[in-house]
């Protein structure tokens, strides 16, 4: 099995606030991320597809097709957006790195028709990233 990874970058703003917490609790749990004016990140998204190369084309999938899927599903939804207000898939969720990565996984998984979505890695900054992977171990057992 071969894994191929495509990277895209988008910029978005967010803040963390749970309406069922008190103001004091929101400040304690979320710290400066609770600033109601929000703040932004340059997110870096790495999407990995696993599969066998097609014997005719030598490709696991056409990277142009993956690029178009990422543009449509992620960039148009999230680039230069406020994640709390403008992304319906995140409604009712705190837009943490974990939750945004999980939403991206759910958006992409049904769109990948050739090969299999193997991993979504979302960097919020060079020092913090979330990984989403399939529940079931991959065929070659390399990743549980």
């Amino acid at each position: 099995m071969i894994r191929i990874t495509r990277k895209v970058e988008f910029s978005a703003s967010h803040f963390y606030h749970n309406p069922s917490f008190s103001a004091e609790e929101n400040r304690r749990v979320f710290g400066k991320c609770n600033n109601p004016h929000g703040h932004g990140h340059n997110y870096v998204l790495e999407v990995t597809i696993a599969g066998e190369p097609d014997p005719t084309t030598g490709m696991v999938l056409d990277l142009k097709e993956l690029k178009d899927i990422l543009q449509r599903e992620v960039m148009e939804r999230m680039d230069h957006r406020h994640l709390n207000y403008e992304v319906p898939e995140l409604a009712g969720q705190i837009p943490t790195c974990e939750n945004v990565a999980a939403v991206i996984w759910k958006l992409l998984e049904p769109k990948i028709k050739t090969g299999k979505l193997d991993r979504v890695r979302l960097y919020e900054s060079p020092d913090l990233f979330a990984d989403c992977t399939a529940d079931a171990p991959c065929e070659d057992g390399a990743r549980a």
Partner: peptide, 10 residues
């Protein structure tokens, strides 16, 4: 789907 979080320190 499972989720993990990685933090970098120096």
């Amino acid at each position: 789907m499972r989720v993990s979080l990685t933090r970098r320190y120096r």
